[in-house]
C-alpha cells in the first residue's frame, strides 16, 4: 500500500486503506440490510389481521416485555458507543468493560425475546398458525437472529483483542461490529413502532 500521512487525530480504525474501505463497504451493506428489512416490514404490514381465526397480537402482546426488550437493546447500543469512545481513547480496558456490558444487555434482550416467542407458541400462535404469525416470527426472528450473530461476532473480536491489543485491524473490526450493533437498534425502533405499538393500539 502506498504510505499515506494520517493526522494524529484520525482514529486508529481509519488509519489504513483496508480500514477505510471496509468501513465504507459495511455502510453500503447496511443500506442493503435496510432493503432487506423493509421487505420483511412490507410483508408484515400486509399480513396484519390475517390470523385465520386464531389468536392475534392484541391478546398476546404485553407492554412490559416489549419495554424491557426495547430498553435493553437501546442501552446496549449506548454502551456500545461508549466502548468505541474508550477504544478511541486507547483504553483497552474500557473497551472490554463496555463491550462486555453491551453483550450482557444483548443476551438479556435475546433471553426475553426467546421467552416471549415460547410464550406465544404455548398460547397457540406459532409460525405455522397463520399468515400473520408467520410474518411476525420471521420479521422479529430475523432481527433476533441478527442480534445472535452480532453477539457471536463480537465475542470472536474480543478474543482477537485479547491476542493482539488495539491495532488498525482490531479497531477496524470493533468499529464495524459496532456499526452493525447500532443498526440493529435502529431496526428495533421500527419493530417497536410498526409491530408492537401498532399491534397493541389497534
Amino acid at each position: 500500500m502506498e504510505s499515506v500521512e494520517y493526522s494524529p487525530n484520525t482514529p486508529l480504525e481509519y488509519q489504513s486503506e483496508t480500514g477505510r474501505l471496509n468501513i465504507l463497504g459495511f455502510w453500503i451493506f447496511l443500506g442493503a440490510e435496510i432493503a432487506l428489512f423493509s421487505t420483511l416490514f412490507a410483508t408484515y404490514l400486509v399480513l396484519v389481521g390475517r390470523t385465520a381465526g386464531g389468536p392475534g397480537p392484541e391478546e398476546l402482546f404485553e407492554l412490559s416485555g416489549v419495554l424491557i426488550e426495547t430498553f435493553l437493546l437501546l442501552t446496549s447500543s449506548f454502551t456500545c458507543g461508549l466502548a468505541i469512545h474508550y477504544m478511541r481513547n486507547h483504553s483497552l480496558k474500557g473497551l472490554f468493560l463496555w463491550l462486555g456490558i453491551t453483550l450482557a444487555l444483548g443476551l438479556g434482550f435475546l433471553g426475553f425475546e426467546i421467552y416471549e416467542f415460547v410464550h406465544y407458541i404455548h398460547e397457540g400462535a406459532a409460525l405455522t398458525t397463520s399468515a400473520y404469525w408467520s410474518a411476525f416470527f420471521v420479521l422479529v426472528g430475523t432481527h433476533g437472529a441478527h442480534v445472535t450473530m452480532g453477539i457471536a461476532w463480537i465475542i470472536l473480536i474480543l478474543i482477537q483483542l485479547k491476542q493482539r491489543g488495539l491495532t488498525p485491524d482490531t479497531t477496524r473490526k470493533v468499529f464495524i461490529s459496532s456499526l452493525y450493533w447500532h443498526f440493529l437498534d435502529v431496526v428495533w425502533i421500527f419493530i417497536f413502532t410498526a409491530v408492537y405499538l401498532y399491534g397493541m393500539v389497534m
Partner: peptide, 29 residues
C-alpha cells in the same frame, strides 16, 4: 449520534447510501 454517519472521507457516500435505502424502503413498504 451513535453511528457517526457523517464522519470519515466517505461521509457523502455513506449518507447517500442510507438516503437511497430510505427511498427504497418507502417504495417497497
Amino acid at each position: 449520534m451513535f453511528m457517526h454517519i457523517t464522519e470519515s472521507d466517505s461521509s457523502r457516500i455513506q449518507v447517500g447510501t442510507i438516503l437511497y435505502a430510505v427511498f427504497i424502503a418507502v417504495a417497497v413498504v
